[in-house]
């Protein structure tokens, strides 16, 4: 057996992170677990309920509906943002002064606070005074995101694509910039077509950053709250009530802390499972 040098002092460098994570994640999570098995009417008085809230949530049509909407939303934005982000990154200049200009323009939507994005798009898409709303209606299409579910979905997705495609672009661009010129030269000598260059050089080299991009976009969009809340408030009706919006309605609107805690744990487990599956499968290919 090879003898390893035993020096565990480096663990102390991890200590601050562990303390931070304990306070901002572990302790709140433990509290949520405690809430999920109890009922409260305030004043820190709790009554034991066992797994009743989990049963309620798992059999609740309302939860199934918002989970379905959430999955549909996340799938749609991933299907749009990832290919679009990669396409934009491919068309961006590789060197010169335009690189910085493009990068700054790309980063701009990411710098805008989420509630401001929601408010901007709300005004932008209003059918009577907003530029987008007026323009679409002028084309003869009946569009009103405050009363039509389809319009509300269209606006929410467009807003998310506008806000977050840049993240995919920046990550994909970083992946592209790390490819040495020698690869392209070799491809040129072999007479490779642009598609072949993309498929066998650029895409494999971008895989790692794209994994991170998809994971980040999955988790963020699965937990999306502020933007649709400001834009549509979850409406019209419940058509854009995603999981977080529904959760807040239950927890704060109805003050049903127990069911809300049970719902957030189920929600957390789904995010954990999908992220783990995705990461493991991507890394498995990498190892091979």
């Amino acid at each position: 057996m090879n003898k390893k040098i035993s020096n565990q002092k480096a663990w102390w460098f991890v200590a601050p992170v562990i303390v931070l994570v304990a306070f901002n994640a572990v302790i709140p999570l433990m509290t949520v677990v405690n809430y999920s098995v109890q009922e409260t009417f305030g004043n820190n008085v709790f009554f034991w309920e066992g797994v009743k809230w989990f049963e309620t949530v798992l059999n609740s049509e309302r939860f199934h509906a918002s989970l379905g909407r959430q999955m549909m939303f996340t799938s749609i934005i991933l299907l749009i943002e990832v290919p679009l982000g990669v396409a934009i990154a491919l068309t961006m200049p590789k060197k010169g002064v335009w690189v910085s200009v493009c990068l700054v323009f790309m980063a701009m939507p990411l710098l805008i606070p989420w509630n401001v994005v929601g408010a901007m798009w709300n005004i932008f898409a209003l059918p009577d005074i907003g530029l987008l709303g007026r323009a679409i209606n002028a084309l003869g299409i009946d569009y009103n995101f405050t009363s039509q579910p389809l319009s509300a979905w269209f606006t929410t997705i467009l807003m998310d694509v506008w806000h977050w495609t840049s993240l995919v672009v920046l990550l994909a661009y970083a992946g592209l910039s790390s490819i040495p010129d020698a690869y392209y030269q070799a491809a040129k000598i072999d007479g490779a077509k642009p598609w072949a260059v993309f498929r066998y050089i650029q895409l494999p080299k971008m895989k790692r950053v794209l994994t991170i991009a998809i994971l980040l976009r999955f988790m963020d969009s699965f937990m999306i709250y502020t933007e649709p809340f400001v834009l549509t408030g979850g409406g019209p009706g419940n058509t854009t009530t995603f999981l977080s919006i529904d959760l807040v309605k239950i927890a704060l609107g109805q003050f049903d802390l127990g069911p809300a805690a049970a719902m957030s744990l189920v929600y957390f487990l789904i995010v954990l499972l999908v992220s783990w599956l995705f990461y493991t499968l991507m890394m498995k290919d990498e190892a091979q």
């Binding site: 302790i27 433990m30 509290t31 677990v33 405690n34 809430y35 098995v37 109890q38 409260t40 820190n44 709790f46 034991w48």
Partner: peptide, 10 residues
Amino acid sequence: LSWMAWTAPT
């Protein structure tokens, strides 16, 4: 720690 609402099973 009362705000954490601990119970024996959790």
